[in-house]
Write a protein that binds this DNA or RNA. Structure first.
Lengths: 190, 190
DNA sequence: GTCTATACGAGGATAGAC
DNA sequence: GTCTATCCTCGTATAGAC
């Protein structure tokens, strides 16, 4: 994809992760770029199309980060810690996970964007399930009822931690407090 | 407060819990009421004032529900289960906790509303902390590092479960799946 | 590809009649 | 208290020049 389109997506992503989909506007984006409103529309003919491409790109990037964790860490509990660390990114700029934010906005999203958000959540949950299953097998993670439901709880906890942290004055402190407790309840080797 | 104002707040609450603060509008509200736009403005001169009163009322109502749980249940683990059940309310109408939704929208909220949201979260967390401490003392809840951080994790988990459920096709099933796992990890007597 | 100009609708808010 | 009428701003989107 072209350079300019990527820059538009970068700015849009920051804004949506910070303020949400409804409060995000092309006008705001153009102010942060050296580019007029109409030029943005040349690259993305509508808000719907931009939203679609934005979440698709986010899914891809996030998937690559998960792959990166697998490559750099063999221990399931370490992988979990790196996963959680991923969710700390952007917090200092008052940003949530794009798809966490869009989950709140789901009712006002075009269908195509809704589907992308759900796909993202499924993918992450599936990844977590595998990590948890491996961790239980190896014995470094607390065994619970089932890796699948445990994964859904874990994802909810991390997204929820981010949501609460987003509302807090000191986001990072709030996030760390919650997440340390979470890892403590999950990891045996700590 | 007057009858009409309450009805306006009722409709506004449904809409905000469903779509978020930015996507909520007086115009939408008036369509669901037998009342014109200008009449809403008679009761609430601005969106900010409506937001303020809305969250204040929500705080009060929610506080009363927590009191109700204390009165009807003496067992800490039962209180926790009733608390979680509270968060199931409205899910069928695609509604989140008002303050969970507003946490996502926090960046675009007037300062006064932001403060109300934070106050709500603190209050609920404090209530949970007491329940958890009591539960550990009695021995019906899993003892963890500290009731205070455990309470923050629990709140995050429930809000996160609601966020994920909000995005899911079948909200209630998604919520139940997550929350059952959560209670299973917390309650000893189950 | 990027720009100016413009159309159009939505949403917040005010003035003043009833 | 509720209404109509009106204003203003913002946001999406289009047309067409450069």
């Amino acid at each position: 994809m072209k350079e300019t389109a990527q820059q538009i997506l970068d700015v849009a992503q920051d804004l949506v992760r910070c303020r949400g989909y409804s409060a995000f506007s092309f006008a705001d984006s153009s102010k942060q770029l050296v580019l007029r409103y109409a030029s943005i529309l040349y690259h993305f003919p509508s808000k719907r199309e931009l939203g679609e491409v934005l979440v698709k790109r986010y899914r891809t990037t996030f998937g690559q980060k998960l792959k990166g964790i697998e490559l750099s860490e063999s221990s399931p509990s370490k992988r979990l810690q790196k996963f959680v660390a991923l969710y700390r990114d952007g917090l200092s700029d008052r940003q949530m996970c794009l798809c966490g934010m869009l989950s709140a906005d789901i009712e006002v999203l075009p269908d195509s964007v809704q589907q992308e958000v759900r796909a993202f959540l499924s993918e992450v949950q599936a990844w977590l399930k595998d990590v948890l299953a491996a961790g239980e097998a190896v014995g470094c993670l607390q065994p619970r009822i089932s890796p699948k439901t445990e994964a859904s709880l874990l994802l909810a906890a991390v997204q929820g931690a981010q949501l609460i942290a987003h509302a807090a004055q000191d986001s990072e402190a709030a996030f760390d407090g919650i997440v340390n407790q979470l890892l403590a309840t999950l990891c045996i080797d700590r």
